[in-house]
Design a binder for these strands. Structure first.
Lengths: 380, 380
DNA sequence: CAGTGCTCCGTGAACGCTCACGGGAACGTT
DNA sequence: AACGTTCCCGTGAGCGTTCACGGAGCACTG
């Protein structure tokens, strides 16, 4: 685990950091096991999970405490019809036996907890935390639990995630791209809201962001500032049925409306990350388009590109202006602050939950549309 | 084969079902009439069970499709011992009736899904997404589900969240401060790992960040750069049993070790946000301490403070240097890039899951310690 | 023609819990 | 003395599913 026994001095560490990826900086001190589970016979060494001891049930506790199931139930559930002394005794026994009521058995009989599945691409993408926040808040208001799944932005993982979701939650809000995965969840019949997918099947409810209006604002703003040579950095991870709805095509349409020269050549694919934006910026500069403005698929890509441009000695916005999409908190903090199409992501999450709730009561819902707002900052 | 003659046709069933598809969630609490089916002998034809919203069970599908429970189960679960034609027919009926197997009933009998509860303060705080990412990844490797709860950084909400957690998950990884909430979860007996809490009870397993080493690095670095008047902006949201372990006291100790004048007066409380950092910076400047360096409880506070300083015309790091804690991605992107004590938050999450897993197998675990590293950038 | 195997399907039983109900003390009331 | 009340506590039933078993029907053997 340790690369070397002696800890690095602060200075040495500081120097090596900027270059290196995180090393293993984990120390684990093991402690003696707290409670030895009643050794079931041949126990030697760490007991593997395969030797699955039978679960401790309410019956076990009842027997051990010399009362009935129901009395144990009353004790652990804080019901009134029980003698305080008995309750204490039962609770002590239960505790000492390590008894924990089964969620499943409880769910079978009592009022059922609704678990909402939330499928996102990647928590590390700063777009999602805000959505998650909205979903958590709205779910909490309804007394729901939220199970979060991440596809890791990997299209091929979506099907696996969808399969898990179908089995383990009652309703689902998802960012998904793979039609197979979408179909899987849809077919399961659970309430389902699909977010931010331009190719959403008509029978699936969804929420989308009105980037038609947004792109028109963004391009209009740049044109107003005198730009005519505008490049776009597209997210290459998304399927490009370029016909309609994608930011890609909406950008081209908006550009055409303003009589700009922009066509497919002006759209550069970028990986959805800062690094992806930087790399795409290199392509723009190498392409000889002499673009005076760059519009990113999202803030992450735009910021990556902007930083690369500065690193190459360009002035922002004099030599090149930058505009992003999404309106991340981050966009306000970078230098220069980024002009961006701000989307109320938290609202998107809340609205999705509301739609799901509507589906539960049998009401059809349709789609939610969120209109972005252009926030002009120093980058353009 | 079936006692009462004519089973419902799929179509008819589909029509009458549509309204009560989500019965599991709507289910009313009064259960006086337990069951209207299985009338005991004087069969007068199929009784329409549409009296109240009752969940559609495998039994309903079986009846409607003219087969047994088990056959429906086989069809739904893709088991081999079934005629392909039968499977198709059953699936069609099930689909048209809107049948969805109950998670709870399944969990009762089959292999149980472990749900890990993850309690964080606020997804919008950029510290947490990385932890979440680590937890999700590690949980996924073990085939666990993760339910995320947010306290909204509100101490008074912690108890409520803890109560929910205790009832609805199998194990728990949490950022919690309220001793009552912690006790609640601990007492439930579920595997539990408490993160980043300097006042963790000894009997609770946990993970912490070694800020003793970290603070020494940070202060040492600033001293090396010639600073002797260093202020700290503390998180005022955390209980300050200032005795040991808190960044607050570790800062003072490190300062003392370097013979700096810093004492309690040099520590300023700040709300845990950019705005909080900015406001605290105002206090520092108003206090007349002439600090030449500011150390933030975390990056958020440090960045807020740094921006405020710049807005007031100060040069960074010439007039005042800034150092943060946590090593957020953000810290690299602000201007100037922030010197910070980088913590591998993803590893923290992973390690926590590993500890929880260890507790499940009965092995004692102890604590995980993560050592931060100082990343020096342009802000100092 | 009995025996054997295979395919497909149905019947208890069990999972662990809570609800409704009923019953027995202990006490007070008529 | 008989009766109603209150307080505790126990018993049967059911929640919806899968597992283990068994059995009917058929084809293929010896």
């Amino acid at each position: 685990m340790f690369p070397c026994g002696v800890p690095l001095t602060p200075v040495a560490a500081a120097v090596m950091i900027e270059e290196e990826r995180y090393g293993e900086h984990l120390r684990e001190r093991s402690r003696v096991p707290r409670r030895t589970t009643s050794d079931g016979g041949r126990g030697v060494g760490p007991v593997p999970t395969s030797a699955r001891p039978r679960r401790i049930t309410i019956e076990d506790v009842a027997r051990s405490a010399g009362v009935s199931r129901q009395t144990v139930s009353r004790a652990v559930n804080d019901k009134p019809e029980i003698d305080p002394a008995t309750r204490q005794r039962v609770l002590r026994v239960a505790q000492s036996m390590g008894y924990r009521p089964s969620r499943f058995a409880r769910g079978m009989v009592g009022p059922r907890l609704t678990t909402l599945g939330l499928v996102i691409a990647d928590v590390l993408n700063p777009f999602f935390p805000e959505v998650v926040s909205g979903v958590l808040a709205a779910a909490d208001e309804r007394g729901w639990q939220v199970a979060v799944y991440s596809t890791g932005s990997a299209l091929e993982r979506e099907t696996a995630v969808a399969r898990t979701v179908v089995d383990h939650v009652d309703a689902c809000v998802a960012f998904l791209l793979d039609p197979g995965a979408i179909e899987l969840i849809h077919r399961s019949g659970m309430p389902f809201v699909l977010l931010d997918n331009e190719h959403r099947p008509p029978s699936v409810n969804g929420g989308r962001i009105d980037f038609a209006t947004g792109m028109r604002q963004a391009v209009g703003h740049l044109v107003e500032r005198g730009h005519r040579r505008i490049a776009m950095l597209d997210d290459r991870g998304r399927p490009d049925a370029g016909d309609h709805g994608t930011r890609h095509s909406l950008f081209l349409r908006a550009a055409a409306e303003h009589g700009l020269p922009a066509d497919e050549d002006w759209v550069f694919p970028a990986a959805n990350s800062l690094e992806g934006g930087a790399a795409a910026m290199d392509d723009v500069l190498a392409g000889g388009f002499a673009a005076t403005a760059v519009l990113g698929y999202n803030d992450l890509i735009a910021i990556g590109a902007m930083r690369r441009a500065r690193d190459r000695g360009m002035r922002v916005p004099e030599d090149c202006a930058f505009v992003g999409c999404d309106g991340l908190t981050l966009s306000r903090l970078v230098d220069p602050p980024l002009t961006t199409l701000t989307v109320d992501k938290e609202l998107l999450g809340r609205a999705a939950v509301r739609q799901v709730a509507a589906q539960m009561t049998g009401a059809g819902t349709g789609e939610t549309v969120i209109v972005p707002r252009l926030v002009v900052r120093a980058s353009s």
